[in-house]
Design a binder for these strands. Structure first.
Lengths: 194, 194
DNA sequence: GTGCATGTTTGCACTCTGCGCAAGTATTTT
DNA sequence: AAAATACTTGCGCAGAGTGCAAACATGCAC
């Protein structure tokens, strides 16, 4: 993160990281296949927290409600801080966005698993894979959309106001999803935000 | 594609591609930044076709209906063939899935633009960015989910039966999205498929 | 403490990527 | 035909990523 801040993405080598960490280049590669995965681990940690929250929700609850609750947990300073910083650097940077994409995708896979488990217990009925995957993918997409809009609007600001804005965006995106995108005007958000 | 087929992903170098194409390694890099983007261009072409169809739809039509129509156009042998082959190779391969992810993401961005244009004309009202991005992202996710399920089920088979299966999956995924995922049982697809 | 076993770190060497540069070769314009 | 423009290529270099074997550290038994 220090190197990212000072030199900017793409302007330092693995050797620099190794030196800064007091280890050899070779040792770095023993633990990480590339700089990308190191950086992705930040986003990964962020999304892991959401996953964790999701799994804690009661099994009977509607998935969308669980997702909403899990996502809202993310709108907390300590949690968003690292990813906000990454985002602000990576908005235009192909290398960063790539590893972020991968992290979001990985999260989708995990949500699919979590949701499958939830449905499996209870009914012996066969699970509709399409339902599962389409829903999980949409949830992640909506979460990502909320984050994107938040960054565009607040530029990663961590003030309480900004964070409550993020919370509201996450909630709104889930209700859009739950209402089937109300199939009409896109100019009326469900709620006014200050 | 020949090299992919014969040697498998990751088992050939840019030099091999250049040689097979009768050009120099340097010339390859004049046109493509990496092997990845070459491969991504296949998926890219596939999604471009959907985009194109989407843009052809009447501006008054509900977005989800336009998306459904655009996606269904993809379920045609000539169009799916290349991507089906890629998918069957890339299922387990990190390098391939990565470039595919990027292509899908790029398509999301383009749908957002297309949808924004559509809404912009007509009303002078400010557009809800969250609505736009969440919807576009969800559409893409559902399309991807349908493709994933199809591959899991049919393994990229191009027979008429298999393709009509794909068509139905695409339609189903859009109606799931349109109905807000009916927030109940995941075990009842909207329609029986042979 | 000595010796041994297991695990980690490192240097070395090598292949491959990606790209700047300048020289070469086509193609088109005038 | 000469000049302008576009495309291709070879060369050289910095950096990624990895196998291998030597060096080093740590823990354990005696």
């Amino acid at each position: 993160m220090d190197l990212l801040r000072t030199r900017g993405p793409g302007n330092f080598t693995v050797e620099d990281i190794a030196e800064a960490a007091g280890i050899s280049r070779r040792t770095f590669f023993n633990y990480f296949a590339s700089t990308e995965v190191v950086i992705a681990s930040v986003t990964h940690g962020f999304l892991d927290k959401a996953l964790q929250q999701f799994r804690l929700r009661p099994a009977g609850e509607p998935i969308l409600e669980s997702a909403r609750a899990a996502l809202v947990e993310l709108a907390d300073p300590m949690t968003v801080a690292p990813i906000a910083e990454l985002y602000s650097m990576g908005q235009a940077n192909p290398m960063l966005s790539r590893s972020e994409l991968e992290a979001w995708d990985h999260c989708t896979v995990e949500i699919i698993d979590a949701a499958r488990e939830r449905f499996a217990q209870g009914s012996g009925v066969e699970i509709d894979e399409l339902y599962l995957r389409a829903l999980a993918g949409s949830i992640i997409s909506c979460g990502k959309a909320a984050m994107d809009v938040w960054f565009a609007r607040c530029g990663g600001d961590l003030s309480p106001d900004s964070l409550s804005n993020l919370r509201q965006l996450l909630i709104d995106s889930m209700s859009l999803l739950g209402s089937g995108f109300a199939s009409h005007s896109p100019a009326t958000p469900s709620q006014d935000r200050h």
